[in-house]
Amino acid sequence: MMKIKRVISAIEKNYITQNLRKEERFDGRGLWEYRDISIKHDVIASAEGSADVSLGKTRIMTGLKYDVGVPFPDLPDEGVCTVMAELLPIASPLFERGPPDEQSIELARVVDRGIRHADCVQTKKLCIEANKAVYILFIDMYVLNYAGNLIDVGGISALTTLISAHVPEGKMEDGKLVWTGKYLDGEYLVNEMPLVLTYGKIDNVIFLDPSLPEELICDGKISISVTEDSITSIQKSGTATFSFDEINMLAKKTMEIGKKLRKDLNLWQYKVNYK
């Protein structure tokens, strides 16, 4: 395909659309297939957990940092887990330097909601002592190469990062924080395994995991986060509209594909044992 430009050529648009109607995609995938996923974990020595995830040519590197702070007064025994995303100008000629734009905020928000509403990280477990000290976890995602569907890669990389976590365990002794020498690992932190699946829609054709040209020409996308047995968040973006039947069909598909993906990825293999 042609090198990425702001404008997608009319013939490329036609080509993709016509082939999608015949259930053909240029990379040879079926409508409900992902590109190849590869995962490396604990790649950053300075981070308390990290993952380097590629989906086709899309690549995101994510790291976990922590801080200890005073809890919010209305939630005295709950820690905080935040997600940030940055679209590095390395990753695409379409990305510009500067403060986060809509696309990076959407990426961070959708991944964040997938984790939050699935009760993936139980914030009560991040409490060291109520009213005094709680953990603040920062999951920071950096996009290294953009070839479509950042959200799904972001979701997998955030989850893998949490699973590979090794956050020093602290406790309060006489009003002072001391470190026990042990670590909070993925098993302690991760309660549910949310995955987010994104579909594109062009005309009336819906397909999983849009590649870059597909994403740039599609009318809209829908991202659905699921755990093993429930749907936890949905985000529709773009101008496409979806019928009730389509949404029901997608919800069912997402549960199915999500279950299989969760099994295939086997993310628990990325747990890190420190001491």
Binding site: M2, I11, E12, Y15
Partner: peptide, 9 residues
């Protein structure tokens, strides 16, 4: 003008 086919780089 090209009306069909694809372009690769």
């Amino acid at each position: 003008k090209k009306n069909n086919g694809i372009v690769i780089s």
